[in-house]
Design a protein around this nucleic acid. Sequence first.
DNA 1: GTTCTAGAAC
DNA 2: GTTCTAGAAC
Length: 204
Amino acid sequence: MSRKRAAPEEDKSKSVKRGSFNPSWQNGLEVSLKDTASHLYSDELVVIIRDKFPKAKHHFLLLPQACIDNLELLDESHVMLLEHMIEKGKDFAKTNIEPKTKNSVRLGFHMVPSMSHLHMHIISQDFDSIYLKNKKHWNSFASPFFRDAESVLEILKKNGKASIDKKKGEELLKQPLRCHVCKELPANIPRLKEHIKRHDKDRS
DNA sequence: GTTCTAGAAC
DNA sequence: GTTCTAGAAC
């Protein structure tokens, strides 16, 4: 028998995709929110879960319980919520991430998120992960595409909103690969991954 | 968000 | 020839 791969299971997905602008993967976080068994922390306002494809040794997502799609929908009334998100995110990092790496943890949002439901990343800066595979992955965490939660909070306080610049986001994802520690410019992803191992050794 | 893979880059 | 990236997925 000469066949390259198993036959594609077309029928299974068609019913979902056809006539729907919101493919199921975009709603993954809504599903996780309802799956209380996956909650590592929860209170009346927020939930913390593991990122399904962690891009570093420690990578979690903190989501509000309320159905807020993205940063664009925040206004003055959400300042306290965002402060709570940051506080609980920091607490979680302090107690759940080993001391060696906890100093380099960042809390923040993607400039243009792929998935529905507002989510704040809690991610260590080693970027040691088999799931970090391409330029988009890298730039979404190591370029200004990653917006620190504290800066977003300041902007929200100042302007009463935290708008999304989609065009700027798309440009940032296409920027050359740049080491987040020493600003070196590795030629490709394998070389970048080899390069950042050095900084990990420097720290330990 | 991921998977898959054509063809660019080496 | 092999490695690597980048765009389609109905």
